[in-house]
Design a protein around this nucleic acid. Structure first.
Lengths: 199, 199
DNA sequence: TGTAATTTAAAACGAGCGTTCTAAAACCCA
DNA sequence: TGGGTTTTAGAACGCTCGTTTTAAATTACA
């Protein structure tokens, strides 16, 4: 009936993700994207709609393949305490090998796009809630099996862990130093340790 | 000899700070700034040079009047443990009353400008080092006077506190919820408590 | 009071922006 | 093989960007 596409939609979307991830929303032009994706602007608009819609697709793709994937791999496959530690170790490792200096696209979106765009604010906040929930489930399970301290509420522990993740991702983008990032998580892990007793 | 300026340089710089702070670098145009500052673009270029130089001046101004001011007010005037707590309490309070959703201009710069601009990377990293040093001095002093636990090294404690600050400022921009931010800092304060003993 | 110096106001510059339009090209089914 | 449909390529649109220019306005000092 009609002429078929000459490209794979997911493949070019991934290329868009990588560029948005590294350069952000405002600093990326449609012409930049066309070059990186190997398409003309007409093909981009035909396939993804306008720039904002493409960014939305890119962000969703990123979230599914980073946070979403990570939670899925660890939860259930690891004891809760190890799941938390694995989550942090992977984020620190990712941050240290991030030579493109892209940081975390979700955190970047939280600061560049979300504050003045209600839709993106909702999307970003929703992901952060999911990460917090993951931490809370881990902490609750760890408190039950005795691998995580129950001196603090699971709610507060999850909140703190969420804050640490975000702090790591900000720090990593201007000071990607191993000693700094690894030293940062040590006290958090100590706080998880059971057996600490108030004076 | 010559016609004098019709405006106060510091006053209009503050107006530029407020706009950059809320909207970021890329999304702010010279025309936006001219309107906000009540100047023509020619006056802006005469006084501050190009857009990037003005942003640099604005960021320096912001840092001096937020982090710099805060460290100066607390260190020396408060016992070390209280200095840390006051620092966090003020940041949480600021974040919750931040109706403009500007977040922290330094964190914004760390993610938008610094990654691809060596000069700004150096500036931002330098400020973060100063904040970390402030925390380290507080922890060391607190460990000496017995108000802060010495189970963790002052280096690691300072790193964690720095990470928490950045995490709060990111979270506050998409989820400015009191329970979240206040719950986030509670475990950190518990970690500071002396008297906790390993099992 | 006139002249040199500087700041203003406002127009103008070229470049790049997001987006759309016009044709030509490529395919499937009749 | 031809007609209908979609995708391509690339020019084009109007607009805004950062920055500069031109000329009028304003001052201090000779």
């Amino acid at each position: 009936m009609a002429r078929p596409r000459e490209f794979d939609e997911e493949a070019v979307l991934l290329l868009a993700v990588e560029h948005f991830w590294e350069h952000g929303y405002e600093a990326t032009s449609i012409r930049d994207l066309a070059e990186v994706m190997g398409l003309t602007s007409a093909s981009i608009y035909n396939t993804f709609g306008d720039k904002r819609s493409l960014y939305r697709r890119a962000l969703d793709f990123y979230v599914d393949h980073s946070f979403g994937d990570r939670v899925g791999r660890f939860e259930g496959n690891l004891p809760p305490r190890q799941a938390v530690e694995a989550f942090f170790n992977e984020i620190v490792a990712r941050s240290l090998e991030d030579t493109k200096r892209g940081g975390c696209m979700l955190v970047n979106s939280a600061l560049e796009v979300a504050p003045h765009d209600p839709e993106f604010q909702r999307v970003v906040a929703n992901v952060l809630v999911h990460v917090e929930d993951f931490f809370r489930r881990c902490v609750e399970a760890g408190q039950r099996d005795g691998t995580i301290s129950n001196r603090q509420s699971a709610d507060d522990m999850a909140r703190m862990l969420l804050g640490m993740v975000l702090g790591i991702r900000v720090l990593a983008r201007t000071r990607p130093e191993r000693a700094l990032l690894e030293g940062l998580v040590r006290p958090a892990f100590v706080l998880l340790d059971p057996g600490s007793v108030a004076p």
